[in-house]
């Protein structure tokens, strides 16, 4: 009897406090797709023949999609023409597990190509990370600087993506200048760099012509600033509370049983 009581209590306590394990995300990579080709129309995108993005227009960035690690065939179609089976561009994307990637459709339509970036998912605790991508086909090489201050990135040409720079969190006035000059082509006042966030600032559009220069800012929270599991937003009602107390009750019973038995032993 005593054994049984102990076992039951043990089982109850274990299941109560056993932590929930996360859904298994092993061997998965995160991939997002950005339409950065200024004159290309809306597109549909397939991965291994399955449509994952429909009617994405210029400057659209998808959320991260989870895909298995390995090689994937990515095809870009004019919107609504997937069924015709004639993509504008097909490319093979190789992804590794637990890594994140941004795949951009870049350049003018007639030279459409795909650029794949490897995305950092962590910062040093309390810092912000930033990198800049130059995806304006007709813009000259540029420097990116803090207005009236340091040059952060130098001489980035079309298709270049800088390394990440790690900075203290701050609100900065940034400007993109023709490399080596003071000519500002793009002004980014009050750019907030938040702690534990990874920024990819992608310059897109045309320096001369339509659509004009613009930036796509991808602001990814560091994996350390995202929760490990879904929030716990409910408690037991009265019945639940009673069941919560059940193990305590059983421990009590077990203990009394033990005491009574001991007393019996000592009396005999």
């Amino acid at each position: 009897m005593k054994k049984l009581v102990v076992t039951v209590i043990f089982a109850l306590v274990c299941t109560m406090f056993g932590s929930a394990t996360l859904a298994d995300n092993h061997d998965q990579a995160k991939v997002r797709i950005v339409h950065a080709s200024p004159d290309a129309p809306a597109v549909d995108i397939t991965v291994n023949g399955n449509t994952v993005v429909e009617n994405a227009t210029f400057k659209i960035a998808t959320d991260y999609l989870m895909v298995p690690a390995g090689d994937h065939e990515v095809s870009i179609y004019a919107a609504g023409t997937v069924a015709d089976g004639e993509p504008v561009l097909t490319t093979t994307l190789s992804v590794e597990s637990d890594q994140a990637y941004t795949a951009l459709a870049i350049n003018n339509l007639e030279n459409l190509e795909v650029s794949v970036l490897s995305d950092d998912m962590m910062t040093t605790e309390g810092k912000a990370k930033i990198r800049v991508g130059h995806f304006s086909p007709d813009a000259p090489a540029v420097d990116v600087a803090v207005t009236g201050g340091d040059v952060l990135f130098e001489n980035a040409e079309f298709k270049d993506v800088t390394d990440y720079a790690e900075l203290d969190p701050a609100t900065l006035d940034l400007e993109v200048r023709v490399s080596g000059t003071e000519d500002v082509v793009l002004s980014l006042p009050s750019t907030k760099l938040k702690e534990n966030t990874i920024y990819s600032v992608l310059a897109v559009g045309l320096a001369s012509g339509e659509p004009p220069l613009d930036v796509i800012v991808l602001a990814d929270p560091s994996s350390t600033s995202m929760p490990s599991e879904m929030p716990e937003t409910g408690n037991a009602s009265i019945t639940g509370l009673a069941i919560y107390l059940l193990p305590l009750l059983l421990i009590g019973i077990g203990f009394s049983y033990f005491l009574v038995k001991r007393r019996n032993v000592s009396q005999s």
């Binding site: 004159d39 290309a40 129309p41 291994n48 390995g70 090689d71 994937h72 065939e73 179609y77 004019a78 023409t81 015709d84 004639e86 993509p87 504008v88 561009l89 097909t90 490319t91 093979t92 190789s94 339509l109 007639e110 459409l112 190509e113 795909v114």
Partner: peptide, 17 residues
């Protein structure tokens, strides 16, 4: 998936702009 060459363009359906 057969690991194919990096990028292949199908010219048949270039956007007609």
């Amino acid at each position: 998936i057969e690991p194919s060459s990096h990028e292949e363009k199908t010219d048949s359906n270039k956007f007609k702009l």
